[in-house]
């Protein structure tokens, strides 16, 4: 009885030891992963700075104007193309809003200012 008990304790101790070691290794592995992710975040943040600057460079108004003139037939909007209040468009169904298209990404910061200035899109069809 006593011997059995001793053996049981010894086995428990060995198992417990092994489990703790296992746990330690697992924790270490996780810690390494966290460190690697932190390093990745750091690298990404640096890359974001470079990309932001590059984005600003590539989308500067002069470059956009050049491209617009070269590839698009867009003209500056005339006063009569701009509506302050879309409800003044005749025969426009009221209360029916166009569904948001998740495929279209709009920068949040620009939205507020632009919505007032949106040219009347359906000029031809509504009249």
């Amino acid at each position: 009885m006593r011997r059995l008990f001793t053996i049981l304790v010894a086995i428990t101790a060995i198992i417990a030891g092994a489990a703790v070691l296992q746990l330690k290794l697992a924790v270490q592995e996780r810690a390494d992963k966290v460190k690697a992710i932190a390093a990745q975040i750091h690298e990404d943040r640096e890359a974001i700075r470079v990309l932001e600057a590059e984005w600003a460079y590539l989308t500067n108004p002069r470059a956009l104007q050049d491209k617009s003139v070269r590839f698009l037939a867009l003209m500056p909007p005339k006063a009569e193309q701009i509506l302050e209040d879309p409800t003044t468009i005749p025969f426009r169904p009221r209360g029916v809003e166009a569904e948001e298209d998740p495929g279209v990404l709009l920068p949040a910061r620009g939205e507020k200012k632009d919505d007032k200035a949106k040219p009347k899109a359906k000029k031809g069809t509504s009249l």
Partner: peptide, 13 residues
């Protein structure tokens, strides 16, 4: 004015 009023949110009327 013609170019920037739409950007600055001033509507023609």
């Amino acid at each position: 004015v013609l170019r920037t009023a739409p950007l600055l949110g001033v509507a023609p009327k």
